[in-house]
Design a protein around this nucleic acid. Structure first.
Lengths: 344, 344
DNA sequence: CTGAAAGCGCTTACAG
DNA sequence: CTGAAAGCGCTTACAG
């Protein structure tokens, strides 16, 4: 096996033309079954593999998708958000199932992050994943749109956003959290996480949370809110501020599990108990969530479905087909961080 | 920007030949600076990007590396070992730094897992990552070797293994764990993790552990050993067996953090305390390790360095250069799961 | 320093 | 059902 075999080698051995080899290899129905079998047998024997560069060049298609993970530059670059990691797993699987290769790249928001994947013909489309500040990257999305790049983006359901955004029903997730906390008898609530236009996903979660509490007669401005990006450190800091503020709190809904983990640590450092003194609820259901002390009750985003949907929809875009669904429904996962029995 | 510009378009606009455009774009020193600047300016203006399929086809090089993550089929397929996830992060970064693209794929051991990446010219080389049973995939490695595929593999330092294996000094890591546990005054030791030829990495850790204990006069066969693959469940099960066995134990060294987490849970379920009743030590230092209760003391493998080394060495292989180093040194990370003060 | 030409290995009209 | 031919968009000897 010194030199790699080409379709011409097979043609020669099979006594047919190279065109026929090409057709036979792709199981074209217009080639005689006998010829086809013969060609395929020889190909197997030669351990022949189609040269993707050549076929992509000719077809002007790469059967490759690019995944761009961009992270908030403020986070420690060695630590990737576990939620995205799960996504990566499911995206990889979804691609494999559809015969697509997956090019992966991490980018800081500051970089020329669309990275020319489609321009260079390395990928047919791009999947964008990131928890950056929405306002920062909106402009980049517009640019991609202007360039007619095929892409989908995991993100928030902000208005004016076209089909390319796939997301959780964050507002509904927030509602679920609020209802659960309410059902457990908690009365004084806080939300920890950014709640601005720059973080529409977090904001939606906050709004949903507020929806639920409103049903119970709790006004939106009665909910203490402290900003935090999606890191443990930010959560820890925010809860310290909350505790220092002297506000009465017995239940905190955190915009992400990472925040929730920091919040629980912050609470425990003050000598308070979770959930006895303060209940803590997360969002995402990252793998760590079940290992914390106490195990974290949280709102699960089905990353497996999300990955499928991202890949599926991107492929539709690439093929000029309409997109069908672009939202997944969150589910509550009850562990013990919010308490179990009803409180007085 | 209807049609993508080609080098011919630029040539036309610049009034030079297409060959010159190609050279200018790659900063060839043999083209006049003026010409070069002019060509590059036009290229930028046209938002021109080299078609990778064409250039790869011509160069017979892809500037792409493939990462194959193969997992033990017995593990839950939705959960990827966090250690590998960290590796993935550092490999991605290392590739980006060297201008390489990264194709990612997860495979079950059962699949035709080398997946023809190099055969199809999609990648110049392959990085193999996995915690499968070594004996199962040894044959596949041999096949790759026979096909003269360029690849490196994160794995064990078993004898007869050529350069393509990059690994931690697992034995040294085991020693570190043993010395630490000894220094804390523990006396009755157990090792939880597979200790057979199929898991050479775990086995090396066990051996190193045993080395250290031997220094203190503890015989190898005085160490209780229970098998476990690298999952929480396996760890939990194994420690139950250990506890049921009635053997005296006050310190357990686990072959991986995942196992250690399960072990701590198993211990706590019996109403025993970590580290007061039994100290627990892990291996890997995955992100969760600092979140467990108590935070896990463990042996850290520098995934950042490991990723670098994997990429660097693969590139050397691709370019027929000799490999320099293929081992990283582990480091102990002391948290609280082994106790802090010396025991009576 | 620049250009004309060949060719990387395919796929796909076109013709039969 | 099959073949001859063109061409995808580059890079790189070769010649000047």
């Amino acid at each position: 096996m010194k030199e790699k075999a080409t379709s011409f080698d097979i043609a020669y051995l099979a006594g047919v033309s190279q065109s026929t080899v090409s057709r036979a290899l792709r199981n074209s129905p217009q080639v005689n079954k006998e010829t086809r079998d013969k060609v395929q047998a020889i190909a197997r024997q030669l351990n022949y593999k189609v040269d993707k560069n050549a076929s992509n060049l000719r077809k002007q298609r790469s059967s490759t998708l690019a995944l761009l993970l961009f992270e908030d530059p403020t986070t420690d670059e060695s630590l990737i958000n576990p939620f995205f990691l799960s996504m990566l797993g499911s995206i990889t699987r979804a691609c494999a199932q559809r015969g697509q290769d997956l090019l992966v790249s991490f980018q800081q928001l500051s970089d020329d992050w669309h990275a020319d994947y489609e321009d260079t013909k390395k990928a047919d489309g791009i999947i964008l994943l990131g928890y950056g500040d929405y306002e920062d990257y909106e402009e980049k999305l517009d640019k991609l749109l202007a360039q007619e790049t095929h892409f989908v983006c995991w993100g928030a359901d902000v208005e004016g956003h076209p089909d390319f955004t796939i997301r959780s029903n964050n507002r509904q997730g927030g509602r679920l959290a609020g209802e659960h906390l309410l059902s457990l008898g908690h009365q004084h609530f806080a939300f920890i996480g950014n709640a601005s236009a720059g973080s529409p996903e977090f904001n939606q979660r906050f709004l949903g949370f507020s929806d639920a509490l409103q049903q119970a007669g709790i006004r939106h401005d009665a909910i203490a809110q402290f900003n935090a990006i999606s890191t443990e450190q930010a959560g820890q800091l925010a809860v310290q501020n909350l505790l220092d503020s002297g506000k009465a709190v017995d239940a905190i809904f955190c915009a992400s599990d990472l925040i929730a983990i920091g919040v629980m640590q912050g609470i425990q450092q003050r000598g308070l108990q979770v959930p006895d003194d303060i209940a803590v609820m997360g969002f995402d259901d990252i793998p760590v969530a079940s290992y914390t002390t106490p195990p974290l009750s949280t709102i699960q985003q089905d990353t497996s479905l999300a990955g499928e949907m991202l890949v599926e929809n991107l492929l539709r875009l690439v093929n000029n087909q309409p997109i069908e669904t672009n939202q997944i429904e969150p589910k509550i996962v009850i562990r013990t961080s919010c308490g179990t029995a009803s409180k007085g």
